[in-house]
Design a protein around this nucleic acid. Structure first.
Lengths: 246, 246
DNA sequence: CGCCTAATTGACAAATTTCAATGGTGGTGG
DNA sequence: CCACCACCATTGAAATTTGTCAATTAGGCG
């Protein structure tokens, strides 16, 4: 249904002299020795099914990873942000394609070298394991969203997820950047572009969010959004599921 | 919407003297030293949010893992079969609940001991890693299914997934056991029980499948099913996505 | 200034869910 | 051994949500 943004495959990355310095982490430290690469928005890092020669770490910008089925239907399985790792797997082929949503800076690591480095280090292994577990937890939450949430709940969950991210760096931020297109959002939430648009409009008219320039918006009432996510937003309340025991 | 089968929480497992001997694998070998436990269909192994004290290995029977959101909507994120591991994570709480679909035999392992054993062994680590990666790949395929497949495609994918499983032990099997209820299938596929039922009926009337007793069915035309899964069934053809490169 | 793409909005169609009724099966106890 | 009950599955009809198609608006960028 949905056509992808084109974007030709990159094989020679432009090298960049600058080094970013985000929160320290052992795997990040490992990557920091690798040369920094840069591509433009729309560029493809790799396609699903390509021989999985490298791992990538996003340094700056946003990346989308997605799968495409038969007749062109696209599913974005995630948006990746600085500090995130892409291509972690033992499979010898990538399980999904990866494209830059914005201009992107990243580092690459040869799969084998990475594997060796991780095996050699007592600190790296648990970190990698922890990242995989987080990814798994996120995937399960996404399954819940895709399986049982309605359009409004999906959009509110999405907005809150992004608000959270902003708040990790700036604890009382209320403005979220949304560099991806409506089509990207739709393909991430399992909706159409029109439904996403209508839902945004509705949330605005209810005063929960407000437009803030072209590619950002302000969350006016986070509490209100949270109430519309259809559960699973353990903002302050912890585990809702736990009642009858023996 | 969907009520769960009740099933009270088990804390003292019935111990069983018999030991099964499936395909050898290092993690399986590790578990084999643990006492075999048994519970009845419907029993709960643990709830989402419980302190994650143990890992489990299914020995015999089928287990469902699921999450529940606010108003009782349930999402089954997976069915687990003999040889599968449950509860692998670094989180200190389970991310989902686990219930026996059928009478179930399993082994438990203390999380810490398991962690230590895996860390100590050069063979166990890659195996665990590989299992996590497989789980991740499965989760992504499920996201594709939930996000963009219609009812017929979902059901066909489900049937084929189960046919594959049967065929791992019996290469030209055409009968698949479906011990779970329609509600379980619906909650796994993100549909309602009625839609699942109607879709089964339609596939039967088209002669693709045939009923085979109460809890099993025969796949008459696997090829036909495969054509209805909406892509992603690399049965003989390998990667469909790979066209324009530079 | 005007074009091109992205986003919005509306009207309609289609798929799935919801609600309701019926049918089948297995288990239990008379 | 049979009847009845509880539960699960099927089927139909109506309702609802989301998707589709089409037209319009709004930006961004040359």
């Amino acid at each position: 249904m949905h056509a992808m943004n084109a974007g030709q495959r990159i094989d020679r990355f432009q090298l960049i002299p600058i080094a970013a310095k985000p929160a320290p982490s052992t795997i990040e430290a490992l990557f920091k020795k690798q040369t920094l690469c840069q591509v433009e928005a729309g560029a493809t890092l790799f396609y699903e099914g390509d021989s999985a020669s490298h791992l990538f770490e996003v340094v700056q910008g946003v990346l989308r990873i997605f799968k495409i089925i038969g007749d062109g239907r696209r599913v974005i399985t995630g948006f990746l942000y600085p500090g995130d790792l892409v291509g972690v797997s033992l499979k010898d082929r990538y399980l999904y394609s990866a494209e830059a949503v914005t201009d992107l800076r990243f580092r690459r690591f040869g799969r084998r070298e990475f594997q060796d480095a991780v095996n050699a280090s007592l600190e790296l292994r648990p970190e990698l394991f922890a990242r995989l577990c987080d990814e798994m937890a996120a995937a399960q939450n996404q399954m819940v969203l895709l399986s049982r949430k309605n359009a409004e709940e999906r959009v509110c969950s999405f907005l809150l997820e992004h608000l959270r991210r902003e708040q990790r760096t700036c604890p009382n931020a209320s403005i979220i950047e949304l560099p991806m297109t409506r089509l990207d959002i739709a393909d991430y939430l399992g909706l159409t572009i029109e439904t996403v648009s209508r839902t945004f409009t509705k949330l605005m008219s209810r005063g929960l969010i407000a437009p803030e320039g072209r590619h950002a918006l302000r969350v006016v009432r986070a509490r209100g959004l949270a109430r519309l996510t259809g559960g699973e937003y353990e903002d302050d309340n912890d585990f809702p599921m736990r009642s009858r025991h023996n």
